[in-house]
């Protein structure tokens, strides 16, 4: 199944998007669980058990108080905080998808997360548009969270 097929993926669905040709994160001890969870259909952020601060991207410390954060699974829902429509991009894997939306999404749980909406008509996106996550499979250890307007 591809991202654009039929009614599209359900919320949090993990989608085989074919051979992965885009850059990926370098996996390490801190970010590994984040990308692995995405591979399994879960979007994680971090929460601090000491001060309650929530953060994205995952780090080895809470940026508010310096303590050790723990994982928090999100609902995978949010609204568009701001966005752009990329109309020129030199890298082939992205060039093939032009134009596409890159956005900051404000999660229901609070933090802003960065992402994109491949296959979504840019005219359907505005600041405030409710969106939901889906995940593209990059490899066995890495899923990539993407966004689309809530139908």
């Amino acid at each position: 199944m591809s991202a654009g097929a039929g009614a599209g993926p359900a919320v949090g669905e993990v989608v085989d998007v074919g051979e992965w040709a885009k850059p990926l994160p370098g996996l390490d001890a801190v970010n590994g669980p984040y990308w692995k969870a995405a591979r399994e259909g879960r979007l994680l952020i971090q929460e601090c058990p000491t001060c309650g601060h929530r953060q994205w991207y995952p780090r080895a410390l809470c940026t508010a108080c310096g303590a050790d954060p723990v994982w928090l699974e999100t609902t995978g829902r949010g609204v568009v905080h701001t966005f752009t429509v990329i109309r020129q991009q030199g890298m082939p894997a992205f060039k093939a998808e032009l134009p596409y939306v890159v956005a900051m999404v404000e999660l229901a749980e609070g933090p802003l997360v960065f992402g994109s909406m491949p296959g979504v008509d840019p005219d359907l996106v505005a600041i405030g548009t409710p969106v939901e996550v889906w995940f593209g499979v990059a490899d066995d250890d890495t899923g990539v969270p993407f966004w689309r307007p809530v139908p």
Binding site: K22, P23, L24, P25, G26, N31, Y57, T84, I86, Q88, Q89, M91, A93, F94, E97, Y100, V102, F114, G115, S116, A138, V144
Partner: peptide, 11 residues
């Protein structure tokens, strides 16, 4: 790495 998969540009 948290931005790399998404094809943003400097612009």
């Amino acid at each position: 790495g948290y931005e790399a998969p998404y094809g943003n540009s400097l612009v």
